[in-house]
Design a protein around this nucleic acid. Structure first.
Lengths: 377, 377
DNA sequence: TTTAGCACTTGAATCAATCGAGTGCTAACC
DNA sequence: GGTTAGCACTCGATTGATTCAAGTGCTAAA
């Protein structure tokens, strides 16, 4: 592959690079004229060079009267020898960091899964919607020593949900420090929103921890993040690709428009909450939707109710000619299952009656009594 | 809305329903001839009825010489009065149950997020790949009593990772039972794969628990599920819709084919592992791919390395004319961030040097020392 | 070796002609 | 009165010819 470089003159490389760049940017075959701006010679010269590059296999002509397009070999050479380094912006880097750190609550996971299921089972695009939920305060702390500098923090929230965090510090804390930490947290932090912790409280806690005072600050941050992470309202959309096989969306622009409308989560939430009032089925057909881009589509949804309050919704979006029977019963089934999982189905217990939730488990998930049966056999 | 029913004759309802069903199934306007099979009268009669239904607003004609299509009002009536109940198959119900119960490991979450980020930042379709990983055994158990019948189970796995489960049973276990449970688990279960637990061991554990013997069986199941959940190899694909705006994929069938190929996860894994050997950049251009459907697309990926071993990959898929510079650096940045999160980046510690992971945290995540800095301020 | 100029090629756009599916309407029928 | 057969009619889709324009290859001059 390095042989390329010795064969291609500097100017050929320039031209090849310019062609790749232009074609990547514009998508059209690139002609000799546009290249004149970047290469310091006439179009005829460039044409000659391009003819040679084509002969060598780096370029292709879709047809005689079109410009040139890089061949696969051309792209390969570009990637191997011509790509310039692109430096990510600080903004992009920050975005990566933030997004990767964010955890998914269990409700989020369930809703995502439900959206995927709705899509899979109906062959339309699925979505799941979660309204904002309030921040929680912690009513009880426990801390379990795991290893030097490492412990598990267990938080029982004011709604009865339990969250755990595996914490590692590079501070030297032992079993005793961890126990003291739990005691201190229980004394100063219980019943308070993490927002409400004032500097004096922090200082008091650090004093109470004596030589382990350094633990407080990072731990408070962790608690803050944990108790607030459930606070994002969100819309998940899955299975967009399924709509591709419906001729209604065969022109990509149509679908693109619909998806763009979906990005306006507020509109969708608004639509669903109003539709839920007047329509028992949760079916919004075409122009019944307030959003123009949805006027050629149908939205079918079902709210998920927990303790009598709607805590989210799942649904599907597809063409007007939707298989309503199937969609309606699928959503019914799904929402029932979710309600069960979230603890509405307290009655249906099997052998042992076990409920298991992972640590994130009861994020956004208040007042649960019994959940799904943990036994699978 | 109920007024409809009194206005429409039984035959009109039949015809409307038949039209909706046929149109939903076939996508084409439906003519009077095809309806003859379902309605017991001649095409002329049906035409008369259709003309009336159109007059009333339930049907529409795309043009004079086409068949009829339901109007929005027609669909509305269908949904309100004509849909037949569709009963889900046992298979579908099982699928729902299983999928909703499955938890996502942290690695899964990170990879999903990474895939989304790759897609967002590059404007191509992103993917993330995770090979199967081995099951873990537990080297230490802890149990924290929360409430009657409820406790948090903390498991330190043989690779040093920590997992926690919030367990609720409808058995009457108190603080002492929970403590005894931990002791018993530590005595009989440490160092073993959950698969290896034999019936005699179970019996011995139940005996050791005396009157709380009933705890053992459900708890073993929980441990089993927890330690094996990381075992699924998987491919996540996100941002399919981004490809819609590239003319290369403007005919939906092209894109559909590509996506179909992506479903063959094994092919992709194969491709990536072979490509990773011979190509330092991880760029597969067009026909370099072994899969035919990808011959008009480029796949760029980057393996994620942890402790010297590849534990997954992230990448993007898009047209040949891809913005390689941007894609390559984005994937570099992402994979670096992921490696840090997973504990490779032990060196880069900031103030406090805090590592936080939630319970699922170190799923598939062995030998970590220090991770990313937990402080955000 | 580069460049200006010109004939040439060829997909895309435009337009007319043809085709056919399905209708509306009329008249006969039960 | 409701139903049905028959037929003229409509109108989008398909096909084919024509034009248009972008971009080339080649030749001859610099």
């Amino acid at each position: 592959m390095e042989a390329h470089e010795s064969v291609l003159s500097e100017r050929k490389k320039q031209i090849l690079k310019a062609i790749v760049d232009a074609h990547v940017a514009g998508g059209e075959p690139v002609g000799s004229k546009v290249l004149m701006q970047q290469i310091a010679c006439s179009s005829a010269t460039i044409r000659n060079e391009m003819a040679e590059l084509e002969e060598m296999g780096y370029l292709e002509q879709p047809h005689t009267s079109a410009g040139r397009v890089p061949s696969e070999m051309g792209y390969r050479f570009y990637v191997d020898s011509l790509v310039e380094h692109y430096a990510m912006t600080a903004r992009e880097i920050a975005q990566i960091n933030q997004a990767l750190k964010a955890k998914m609550s269990e409700l989020d996971q369930i809703l995502t899964t439900a959206s995927t299921l709705a899509s899979n089972l109906t062959n339309y695009t699925g979505f799941a919607l979660k309204p904002r939920s309030r921040a929680l305060s912690v009513s009880r702390f426990e801390a379990i020593y795991i290893a030097p500098g490492q412990f598990v923090l267990v938080m029982v929230a004011d709604d009865g949900s339990v969250k755990t965090r595996n914490v590692k510090l590079d501070l030297n804390c032992d079993s005793a420090s961890v126990a003291r930490l739990a005691a201190t947290l229980n004394r100063y932090m219980t019943g308070r929103l993490a927002d409400e912790i004032t500097l004096p409280t922090m200082v008091a806690m650090e004093e109470a921890m004596a030589e382990d005072g350094a633990l407080i600050s990072p731990v408070i941050k962790i608690i803050y993040e944990t108790m607030n992470e459930s606070d994002r309202g969100e819309l998940k959309v899955t299975g967009v690709d399924r709509l591709l096989e419906y001729p209604e969306y065969s022109d990509a622009s149509q679908l693109k428009g619909l998806l763009g409308a979906l990005e306006q989560k507020n509109d969708l939430m608004e639509m669903i909450s109003t539709a839920a009032e007047r329509d028992p089925h949760g079916v919004v057909i075409g122009s019944e939707a307030s959003v123009k881009e949805m006027n050629n589509s149908t939205v079918v949804f079902k709210t998920i109710v927990k303790d009598g309050k709607p805590i989210g919704a799942i649904g599907v979006i597809g063409p007007l000619r939707m298989d309503y029977a199937r969609v309606l019963s699928t959503l019914d089934g799904l929402s029932g299952n979710i309600a069960d999982l979230l603890g509405e189905g307290a009655a249906q217990l099997g052998d042992g009656g076990v409920t298991v939730t992972d640590q994130e488990s009861e994020d956004d998930n208040n007042g649960r009594q019994k959940g799904q049966n943990g036994n699978r056999g």
